[in-house]
Every structure is written in structure tokens, then in C-alpha cells.
């Protein structure tokens, strides 16, 4: 009765809202998006190197392909950084940091490697980016009490990835 009265008043007046903030959808965190995005960065670096190695004219077709590879590399490096930032900022809690004391440093390293992967076409940097995010994924799954395994991705560039044992 009172609720319906207040609700009717709300429709007429529009009360302020206070957020009992909880990330929506609640509890859905997964580092796999970041891992795949980082892998895509290395794949784009490989495609860029292959295109360059072909030689020939740097014609419009070449420039178009190269521009597309660079654009996807940019996008996915930033996506990986964003995904890690969200998990780190919203999911990771004090008790996780107690167990994994180096997590802040690892996240900072991922941010730096992500930026460097955008700035350069250095494959080794991209590989380090993937490796650091894999390390983050191992910690993430450990906070869930879920064991992980390492296996090569079943697609190029076939780098070693961390997968949860679900």
C-alpha cells in the first residue's frame, strides 16, 4: 500500500536515485577477452611483418592492408587493457591482494606493455603482453579456486595461453 503510493509519487515527481553499485551483470568477470585481444595484437604484428616482407610496390592496396592491421592492433591492445582494468578495479579485493602481493605491479606492467604494443610493431613486446595477461589470468582463476592449464592456442599465432580447468 505505502510502496504503491510512493511509487505513484515517484512517477509524478521523480525521486532521486541512489546506486547500491554492483557491477552488472553481477559477478561476470573473465580474463579470456583480454587474452584473445592480446593474441590478436601479436597476430596483427605478424601480418604486418609478412606484408612488409613481400616487398613490391607500396601501392594503395598495400597501404590499405597495412592500415587495417594497424587499426586492429590499436583497437585490441586498448581492449585488452580495458578488460584488465575492469577486473583489477572492480573485482579484485583486499584479500586477493594479500595472497597475490605482486598484482598491482603486474597490472601496471600490462598497461605499459599494452601501450608499447600500440606504439610499435615489435613482436617481442606483443608476446610479453600476452604472457603478462596469461599471468593475470592464472591469478584471477586462483581467486576463484579454479585450477588452470597452459596450452597453445589452436590458431595463429599459436602462443601458449592459460585456460581454466572447468
Amino acid at each position: 500500500m505505502i510502496y504503491k503510493l510512493i511509487q505513484a509519487l515517484d512517477k509524478m515527481i521523480g525521486f532521486d536515485q541512489a546506486d547500491a553499485h554492483c557491477d552488472i551483470p553481477c559477478g561476470i568477470y573473465d580474463p579470456s577477452t583480454a587474452q584473445i585481444a592480446a593474441l590478436t595484437v601479436v597476430r596483427m604484428m605478424d601480418l604486418m611483418a609478412e606484408l612488409e616482407a613481400k616487398g613490391g610496390n607500396k601501392d594503395v592496396s598495400y597501404q590499405n592492408s597495412m592500415a587495417r592491421y594497424v587499426a586492429v592492433k590499436e583497437e585490441h591492445a586498448e581492449l585488452a587493457k580495458q578488460e584488465i582494468r575492469v577486473i583489477w578495479g572492480d573485482y579484485i579485493k583486499a584479500q586477493h591482494l594479500e595472497k597475490h602481493a605482486g598484482l598491482h605491479d603486474l597490472v601496471h606492467k600490462i598497461m605499459q606493455l599494452g601501450s608499447k604494443s600500440r606504439q610499435t610493431a615489435d613482436r617481442e613486446t606483443g608476446v610479453q603482453f600476452v604472457a603478462a595477461i596469461n599471468q593475470f589470468a592464472e591469478i584471477f582463476w586462483d581467486t576463484k579456486g579454479i585450477a588452470t592449464k597452459r596450452a597453445k592456442a589452436p590458431y595463429a599465432p599459436a602462443l601458449e595461453m592459460v585456460y581454466p580447468n572447468l
Partner: peptide
């Protein structure tokens, strides 16, 4: 005194989305 509508679920089950305080 003010009336405020609750959004989000972090205080659930006590306070739930759509409740008022």
C-alpha cells in the same frame, strides 16, 4: 527528509532494486 529510490543489487537481499528509502 527525502525519499530516494534504490537501484542496483549490492545490498540485496535486504535492499533491492526499486525499493525506496
Amino acid at each position: 527528509f527525502r525519499i530516494i529510490k534504490v537501484t542496483g543489487e549490492s545490498l540485496s537481499p535486504t535492499y533491492q532494486e526499486g525499493d525506496y528509502v
